[in-house]
Design a protein around this nucleic acid. Structure first.
Lengths: 211, 211
DNA sequence: ATGAAAACCTAGTGGGTACTAGGTTTTCAT
DNA sequence: ATGAAAACCTAGTACCCACTAGGTTTTCAT
């Protein structure tokens, strides 16, 4: 992002700027965790910087020393979560059936982190508005997810393991919609829906495999 | 709700209270339409009474003469929309296949009213929070929808028109989730998804019928 | 140890929020 | 026509919002 000469960053000898302090990174993480919780509970527009600051024991102004604006904070939360997902999937370029089985596993994992599920649910609905700061983020995200999953369905189709009459792209859009929609019902009342079971049910109807 | 003696309502002769004026009902409708638009665009928490009042050419205080609180306004918007849906479905106690075909028709209709779709999308995500004033509303709503649709799938099943291995209740939960999830994708980018086509695709995989 | 920058604070700015008190204008049954 | 209530307004309450200016405290390389 920045193009500060490496000399200044690694060895600030004589140069004016100084790096951040030892505890700074931990503070930023604390803030991101708190912001995540606030945005997950109330969304971006209704969630406030004060809520975040209070959670982490800072003033609003202190918080804004670390993140220059509310929008920047949201962006940081989203990119952090993306990095963590990538980590979680490991060196994951699973393909075909492996990827589809991975989706079931992901759904199962999601039932253990209602906060994250809530964040994406509330935020994606809110970000439907083209003026929302996360609008572009979600557009990109859906495109990426769609491409990834449809690649898997296409491969499974080439292996003749899709039920006849099922188009890979249609199956993709339906799977994504199903997973998103289940989350709303599950957040409203988590006793009413067994998310992984429904995803398995769908995949077994759409493919000829067992999950 | 109120238990004012009927005599006072229908014939206020001598009694103090008076009914509302001729244009009052029209005003209330204007307000509800405006409130609907605001809540659909920004949700309940981020949408403001001022936005609503401005749209209808009133002051905040003037608005609050008709609806005593923001919460009351939301409630009125939701119940109005429910009444209109019931009207739209006509003397609709469609059953079995008719009801399932009705769901496709409903999805098609939804593509003509992005505002309403947005309202329910944003609001249902927001109302996931148990503290949200519409939380109970959405819980009731989902229960009702689930019961209605699962009745239809059960009947279709009795007629032997469900694909083998498909459970009515599972199909119900999947259909609802699918429809909800499609809406988010469609609102984000309405060129990316053909909602009715996806619903048809799902129903044709789950049943042995053509839609 | 010291001094300069990072971290953080107090105290604001200008704005928005839902909602209320109390008055003015409009309607309309008598 | 008139007067009482409905409809609506102005002006305010008390509070929350994101963000800023400028000062104090803490860290840490020298």
């Amino acid at each position: 992002m920045t193009d500060t000469p490496a000399a200044l960053v690694e060895a600030p000898r004589r140069g004016r700027p100084r790096g951040s302090y030892a505890k700074t990174e931990a503070r930023r993480q604390e803030i991101l965790t708190a912001a995540f919780q606030v945005f997950a509970a109330s969304g971006y527009r209704a969630g406030s910087l004060k809520d975040v600051a209070d959670k982490v024991g800072l003033t609003q102004a202190g918080l804004l020393h670390h993140f220059p604006s509310k929008e920047a904070l949201l962006e940081a939360v989203l990119t952090l979560r993306d990095e963590e997902s990538v980590d979680r999937l490991g060196t994951a370029d699973a393909k075909g059936m492996d990827l589809l089985r991975g989706m079931v596993e992901l759904t199962r994992y999601n039932t253990t982190i209602p906060g994250l599920v809530s964040l994406y649910c509330v935020l994606s609905a809110e970000a439907t508005d083209p003026e929302h700061p996360a609008h572009q983020y979600f557009l990109r995200r859906y495109t990426w997810v769609r491409d990834t999953i449809s690649g898997a369905f296409a491969e499974v189709g080439r292996q003749g393991r899709l039920r006849p009459g099922v188009a890979p792209l249609a199956a993709t859009r339906q799977l994504i919609a199903l997973m998103d929609g289940l989350q709303v019902q599950w957040l409203l009342d988590n006793t009413s829906v067994d998310m992984p079971a429904e995803v398995v049910g769908f995949l077994e109807v759409v493919t000829t495999e067992k999950f």
